[in-house]
Amino acid sequence: MGDVGELELIQRSLEGDLEAWGEIVVRYKRMVFGTALAVLRNWADAEDAAQEAFIRAYEKLHYYDLSRKFSTWLITVTINVAKNMLRKRKAEPEPKTFHSEDPATLVAREELRKAVKEAVWSLPEGYRLPLVLYYWEGLSVEEIAKAMRLKPATVKTRLFRGRALVKSKLLEMGVTADAV
């Protein structure tokens, strides 16, 4: 089924062909998981959300407008599912904080990578999600805006501020500005 077009897979799924939907899952699971993780920040929850998102999308497939980009629509569904899970989980767990004993060691490449990772994943969701969609999913600003139901200008601002926040967090952790 590897060479079957996306549109055909979607149409076959609409007719109830689960095999076709399975192929859609194979193609988009990394994207959906990444999106869910951006919201939930927890592997197990993101896995549950990804599964639920694919089920929800299948059930709502007849609402999908074939003229729209499928991946953007699927991301919107995923964000909704993940945010619902977040709401059920009530309070978002405290971001993991990064404690460095010795700022000097942070200059080492490995430590720097760790620090950036920590900084990115402890960003507030509103900044984290656009960053993941932009850098991981490779979505354009316009596509992120559609998926998150925001204005493109807002997305641009969030991307910019998200990046600035990463930088300031790194500074907080003791990583020197030069290293970034």
């Binding site: 699971k29 990394r30 998981f33 990444g34 993780l37 592997w43 197990a44 993101a46 896995e47 990804a50 990578r113 950036v116 990772k117 900084a119 990115v120 994943w121 960053l131 993941v132 850098y135 991981w136 990046r163 990463v166």
Partner: peptide, 16 residues
């Protein structure tokens, strides 16, 4: 930043 995101997501690949 790209690396930081990719690493975290790829590390969970087995779950998929």
């Amino acid at each position: 930043i790209r690396q930081a995101i990719a690493e975290e997501i790829s590390a969970a690949e087995a779950r998929l």
